[in-house]
Design a protein around this nucleic acid. Structure first.
Lengths: 130, 130
DNA sequence: GGTTGCCTTGACGTTGGTGTTAAGCCGTAG
DNA sequence: CTACGGCTTAACACCAACGTCAAGGCAACC
């Protein structure tokens, strides 16, 4: 499988695949003419990468998952290193969720305050839900 | 007030203040020697900027708040334009909170699954709280 | 005159994940 | 011969909010 085919099958671009390779995530052999030749298993690797990227992981965080897959495991997250990253990421997400919640509260307070100072005090307050 | 003094009083750097000016947020007069001369009110403007930045606003989003302050209002968020940005930002944060929550759920599911496949089934499950 | 410490503009570096040329090789088809 | 599509590497462009030199002017003090 050449790079264009893998890119299309994985829903991404050749440029992106080369970038992953450059960062040690995707592996490719070479044809006699220098073209990258991909193993069928790489499609799964690329899917794993894109899924984790979409979840907010960085490429460095993803490496353990790929190595886990490459080691023959059924899923990328069953290895100790992956689990460690998983725990760390969950903690990060939790932390970020907390911060965002605080920010949301502040913004709501400001909005309420701005609406209260409005010149039409027909309804005392209009607090939005959630 | 020169740039260094304002920077220190606002808890930031001269470079940052020049950057804000470049983006039309902070205003400065010029001394005969070319030095920026800041009005006392600018301290408040800079504080407003830094507060909003910390809440995840971009400089473009912040502009209405600064103009609102500059128009003589007691707070930057009482003007219609500011309120509009505020509403939009709240919606963005809500959306992001939703996405993050989903991601968190996925990560947790993966973690649980990884732990279940562990070779020591001493405790059936170990679901973390929150 | 020299040093120190402010200030000035200009411009490149950072972080991540690509998009987008540019210049060129490979192979096939007309 | 030429055109065309796919591949190669190299390298700049992007977004945001600055940090960090670089090279130089201005002001005060010794």
């Amino acid at each position: 499988m050449l790079i264009g085919e893998l890119a299309e099958r994985a829903g991404t671009s050749p440029r992106t695949l080369r970038y992953y390779e450059e960062h040690g995530l995707v592996r490719a052999g070479r044809d006699a003419n220098g073209y990258r030749q991909y193993d069928d298993g790489e499609l799964r690797v690329v899917h794993e990468i894109r899924t984790l990227l979409a979840s907010g992981f960085g490429l460095d965080d993803i490496r353990p998952f790929v190595e886990c897959l490459r080691a023959g495991n059924s899923a990328g997250h069953v290895c100790p290193d992956s689990v460690a990253v998983l725990r760390r990421k969950i903690a990060e997400v939790d932390d970020y969720l907390g911060q965002l919640t605080e920010v949301r509260q502040r913004l709501h307070d400001q909005l309420d305050q701005a609406l209260e100072n409005r010149s039409d005090p027909q309804e005392t307050r209009c607090r939005t839900r959630r």
